[in-house]
Design a protein around this nucleic acid. Sequence first.
DNA 1: CTTATAATATCAAGCAACTTGATATTGCAT
DNA 2: ATGCAATATCAAGTTGCTTGATATTATAAG
Lengths: 159, 159
Amino acid sequence: MADSLLDQSVKFSQTEPFPSVRLSYIIGRLDRVISQRIDEYISPYDLSVTQYTTLSVLSHRSGLSNAQLARRAYVTPQAMNQVLAQLAHAGLIERESHATHGRILCINLTEQGKTVLAVCDAAVEAMEQQMLNGVDFAERESLRKVLIGCVRALGGGLR
Amino acid sequence: MADSLLDQSVKFSQTEPFPSVRLSYIIGRLDRVISQRIDEYISPYDLSVTQYTTLSVLSHRSGLSNAQLARRAYVTPQAMNQVLAQLAHAGLIERESHATHGRILCINLTEQGKTVLAVCDAAVEAMEQQMLNGVDFAERESLRKVLIGCVRALGGGLR
DNA sequence: CTTATAATATCAAGCAACTTGATATTGCAT
DNA sequence: ATGCAATATCAAGTTGCTTGATATTATAAG
């Protein structure tokens, strides 16, 4: 007996009604599997998934503040501050004073940070391709759009 | 400036190319938001998201063993044993000897477990509807199918 | 000018959900 | 009998978060 409906050994016939599995359950399991995979690829670089994700966000949008990063990650500023402290200690990010605000610090990737991130990104990208094997471009875009819509529909903010 | 591409305040025009955001990133954020929401609904019942999920799995398939539950959740048996210990202590599950195997214990929901789960399920179901507002049935099914496929494509197993 | 408020960064301590390590017990194969 | 895989569970540790707290900026209002 298969351990889970998500398991390879459970075959779905094209004519059978799809089992009623909650989307939130699938998302939870998929996220768990993704994280474990990413962890495999990046742990040789002494990076955690959380740290990697933060680096990745910064590569898309440099100069974000601790508070902004925290909001994007749906965690508290204190949690994000700890992540940033680790990354700074590893030399992967640097903090600069904000141009007009004496309190805010802008976070940027260092060259080392960019280098490490690039290597990890390659592995993660390969995983994404594997994950979406057989899903064509239009469906991928549709998938992304719907899932982003889900985040938004739930208000996508901190409690 | 919006804090994230996932944020409500960022409007996507129908004619613009969709921003290149990794699916794994979206999944991560969506799962985070879902978990926070579920936690809001179930915490009054002294349940954690992990505990609730386990109860939910058991309601779909009773009699699973600790090892099977662990595999389905992509965690170690020890981790699952701790969850089950908590649920047993709360009177929400019971463990019975397996019919033919002297080592395996079959886990079932108690009546209390079923009652608590039903209440939480109602709230979670409402959240799912909210999350999928505007997504029609066919698209929901397609979404589920693709995401399950993603789990499978990643091998969906323990490291 | 003073006062109040919101937002910022960061130190401190604690907690939940995992992990690795270990052990004993079953069932099956050789 | 021996060996191996799978089971349940005790033990200790780690990670990624939380809540609590504090000081500092910037802004608004009186």
